[in-house]
Structures are given as structure tokens and as C-alpha cells.
Amino acid sequence: MTSARPARVAVLISGRGSNMQALVTTQDESFRIVLVASDRPEAAGLAWAREHGLPTFALAPKGIGKPAYEAALDAALREAGAEYIALAGYMRLLSDAFVARWRDRIINIHPSLLPRYKGLDTHARAIAAGDATGGCSVHVVTEELDAGEVLGRAEVPIHADDTAETLAARVLIEEHRLYPAMLREFVRR
């Protein structure tokens, strides 16, 4: 059942924000991006968000510590009226306390077919294992790394001449397709 108004979503990024851009450009009656936040004030995705009229928040945790950083982030999310959080290339682990405050309202896009290859270097690990396919997954964020309910996956064939970079480029195309669709479904639950 569609709500009377779009769900208010904040997107957390650490870099160029290509998945954030995919979410922004596919907003519809189901969700609206109300804030783009980053742990890296120099993140290229913040500039893109500002150019597209989106509110932004940026704060580096270095020097202030994780608790102070997360308190400031939480305050910015609440001030923006965020109801959900979409992690989109956000490369910082959230504390258990932060995840608990936003329980069942944070999702993430991960570049592997979960539960395989949690964490980093997913494409290289899939190639090294001789897998026939790689891909991406959207999952609910829990206190355990990349272990929450998988909402959806997209598979990409691994070619004999693939490198981690060539596979990542093909998977990214699928990430941009999958993430908006899964966010849309998630906020409608």
C-alpha cells in the first residue's frame, strides 16, 4: 500500500555517490531524498547533491571520535526529517547503538551476492574463487556486517578475462538499477 506522501530518505555516501545519484534521479511518489550526508567533506557526491538542490551534511569523524560524529549525524538526519537511511558507498561502519536507533530503517547496497563476500574486495574475491557470477545485493543493515535480510540481488556473469575493475563496472550498472527498486519496495512495507 502506498503511503499518502513519499517516504523521507537520507543517503549516506563517502565518495562520488553514483548510487546516490541513481536514487535521486529515480525519486517518485514512494520516496524523496531529504538529505545527502558524508563522513568525507571533500566527497564528490556532495558537490553533485548541492548542484541538484539537495540539503547536505558533511563531517569528518577524525579528531572528534565516533560517538560525537554519530551524534551529529543523527541530529542532522532527524533535523532533515529522515525516516529511512540508504547507505550508498558509505565506507564507515556504524556503531551498534546507531543501528539500534534506526533499526529496520537502514538499507545498504553491497557489491556481492550476499551472503557471499561480506566486507571489502568482493569482486577480486569472486574472481579468485572461480565463481561464474558476481553481482550486488540490497540488504537491511544490522549490527553484524552485511548480514541483514537480503531484499534483492542482481547477478552479473564473470568473464574469463575479467579483472576486479571490469567486473565492478558491470556490477555498478546493476546496482544503479537494483537499488532504487529495492528502496521503493522497502519503504512501502
Rank of each mutant, 00 (worst) to 15 (best):
M1K: 15
M1R: 15
T2A: 14
S3T: 13
S3W: 13
R5M: 14
A7N: 08
R8K: 12
S14W: 01
R16P: 09
R16A: 14
M20K: 00
V24E: 01
T25D: 10
T26M: 09
Q27S: 08
Q27K: 06
S30H: 11
F31D: 02
R32W: 00
R32C: 12
R32K: 15
I33E: 00
V34A: 11
V34P: 05
A37Y: 04
L46V: 10
A47K: 12
R50E: 12
R50L: 12
E51C: 10
L54M: 11
P55E: 07
T56L: 00
F57Y: 08
L59R: 04
I64A: 11
I64F: 14
I64H: 15
K66Y: 08
K66H: 02
Y69G: 10
A71L: 05
A76S: 11
Y84K: 00
Y90S: 00
L93D: 02
V99Y: 10
V99P: 09
R103P: 03
D104S: 14
I106E: 06
N108G: 04
P111F: 10
S112E: 06
S112A: 15
L113F: 04
R116S: 14
K118F: 00
G119W: 08
G119M: 08
T122M: 10
H123F: 06
H123K: 10
R125Q: 11
A126E: 05
A128K: 10
A129V: 06
A129F: 02
G130K: 08
D131M: 05
A132Q: 15
G135H: 04
E144W: 10
L145D: 08
E149F: 05
E149P: 15
E149H: 06
V150T: 13
V150M: 12
V150K: 02
E155F: 12
I158P: 00
H159K: 15
H159T: 12
A160H: 09
D162E: 07
T163V: 07
E165M: 10
E165G: 10
T166H: 07
A169M: 03
R170V: 06
I173G: 05
H176L: 06
H176C: 01
L178F: 04
Y179F: 09
A181D: 14
A181S: 15
E185N: 09
E185Q: 14
E185G: 14
F186N: 05
V187W: 04
R189W: 08
